[in-house]
Design a protein around this nucleic acid. Structure first.
Lengths: 337, 337
DNA sequence: AAATTTATCGAAAGCGCTTTCGGTGAAATG
DNA sequence: CATTTCACCGAAAGCGCTTTCGATAAATTT
């Protein structure tokens, strides 16, 4: 593949000139630039990224820290959608994503340490666990960073308008005539979960609807299984809700399963609205009514925010809230008379 | 964060000794090693990966090329599951994954070029498109490589036993009494799709079942939408099948939707068995009977294969086939009398 | 006591690249 | 024609690390 030294030897110029020619410096004539570029093409020359990084202190890599909360790794559909759009946006600017692990050849180091070791230009964390020690460490560091789906005043964050999302869901159910509306919530340690709870409460309050005991139930960490269990608890209530707003699609799918297993029908007996609009939502039966998060926009905006910090070399600490939409499908319907 | 030069200054040893101490060379006394290690810990020293790579010609990174065929990017659940298990296995050995894009700061280069530029130690390609020019280029290169879910005699490959998978599905349906068994196939340009077709054909042949015209239908590239369309075509057939083996879960979900929309019931009117056992399969209604691919094992095995090539510095060209299982759920049932 | 080993350390080169700072000769200016 | 400017190029230092090859002093061996 060759180095600039080979190129210098072949063309007869110095490595300085070769480097300059390849990097479009102005102080090299068009003629010699052409020769060098040609020679580079001929030998299939490619600059060594490590050498470049070493010398420029710019690696053109972005480290991504992924949630490993509920062990889903890279299989979380919502996070995945965000990462995907983030990737598209960053790659357009020439960055590569690097997924680091915590153990560097047997030593095991923190994520921050690992990112420092790899000398990433920036970090994106997509992790819902506010309290995670590693996340905090990353935020406190001086590496450009953007955090998704989590709140923080110490760095750039971007997340959905969960408050409105909750309200949207409740209002929709209200308009369908429902008055007994329960909420299967995400764990309170998770910002998104908390905000949706708040949205739910505010909406109920505004509609002058009481929240009966047991109607606000913790669904844990957004898994299908936990959603199912929460719904079972709800079904066992003396006064069963006619509708339930679930803080995540996967949980909602679990909830629907519980309902079906109890011999009831969605939406005939109970309406359910989810949150996220993951890919599968439109394919489950019945198709899930849900609050769509704009993963495309979240990922892209996060990318912009991060890159801006990288190129301008200054930290920005904005919190950007991305609007959500209610997608009405078939899991919600009018309340039974 | 500091460099070995700082460490040398602080401890009073040469950078050579510092480096050796940090890398456990035998020709440095325990005492000085202790001092140096302690100093390193104190200042939070971390070696610069780029400098190390430059000097050792080993980057401890693995490049991953992901399918971009049907634009799903990182959102393909099956590929994702594999990557996840691959990641776990490689990270344990100290490797980081880097997802490269094709355009390096405005120039746009091939994947191979990009990988060379990043000086990855190895490559994993998870892409079903056999003919992809970039994939071929990667395979022909001298970088250690492993390919997943695709056949090739020119490199290490690992994929599921798609032949048996097809047979498994057909036999299951046969045992339920079905004789009119159709197959919604993956595109023939995709190895996995082709093998499943072959499995289907062989099984049908062995059971002395004819394959009526139109019973073998191309479902394209495994999307829900395409599966749905294929099923609609199948439903319009004069002699409608009583069971259908679908080459992918997402297509199967689409197929079920088509069936339901036609006013028919799964499995009462038509049985369907999918392929992959993606996460959602057990949550759709009815829960999908499917051929499970062992993503865990595929990813891990691919990792082993790749790392072995990296450390032994020699190419191995094995093709390893991972067994599949039939997971019987509720989308298949006895044929109507 | 002389000759060898052994243990411990460091100088220096090298990995491939960027960037500063001068140094040419040619063109432009007076 | 003397002087300034300009266009073009290269020497050299530096990025942070590894690794070879000696060098030295201490420990062993004869």
């Amino acid at each position: 593949m060759g180095t600039i030294y080979d190129l210098a030897k072949i063309t007869g110029f110095s490595i300085t000139t070769v480097s300059k020619a390849l990097n479009n410096y102005s102080d090299v004539s068009e003629k010699t630039k052409a020769k060098i570029v040609q020679a580079a093409a001929d030998m299939g020359y490619l600059p060594n990224a490590h050498a470049q990084s070493l010398s420029t202190k710019r690696s053109w890599t972005i480290g991504v820290m992924f949630s490993e909360a509920n062990e889903v790794g890279m299989m979380h559909p919502f996070f995945n959608a965000i990462i995907e759009s983030f990737r598209k946006a960053t790659e357009q600017q020439g960055y590569d994503l690097i997924f680091v692990s915590r153990n560097l050849r047997n030593r095991d180091m923190s994520y921050l340490e690992h990112f420092q070791h790899r000398a990433v230009d920036g970090i994106v964390v997509i992790c819902s666990d506010q309290m995670d020690k590693h996340v905090q460490e990353l935020i406190q560091s001086s590496i450009p960073i953007v955090v998704v789906d989590m709140d923080s005043t110490d760095c750039s964050v971007v997340f959905s308008d969960n408050l409105s999302g909750g309200t949207l869901a409740v209002n929709h159910l209200y308009e369908l005539g429902h008055r007994l509306i329960a909420h299967i919530a995400g764990d309170m340690t998770i910002d998104a979960g908390l905000a949706r709870i708040e949205g739910y409460k505010q909406a109920m309050d505004r509609l002058a609807l009481p929240i009966p005991d047991g109607y606000l139930i913790n669904g844990g960490f957004f898994s299908v299984e936990e959603g199912k269990q929460a719904m079972q608890t709800l079904l066992a209530l003396p006064k069963r809700p006619t509708a339930v707003f679930v803080a995540g699609d996967q949980m909602a799918i679990g909830a629907m399963e519980a309902i079906h297993e109890a011999g009831l029908q969605v939406p005939h007996d109970i309406s359910v609205v989810g949150y996220d609009d993951i890919d599968m939502s439109k394919y489950v039966t019945p198709k899930l009514t849900t609050v769509r998060q704009d993963t495309e926009r979240i990922g892209q905006h996060a990318a912009e925010l991060l890159i801006e910090q990288i190129v301008n070399k200054r930290r920005v600490m904005t919190t950007d809230i991305i609007p959500v939409d209610l997608i009405v499908r078939q899991s919600t319907g009018p309340v039974k008379p």
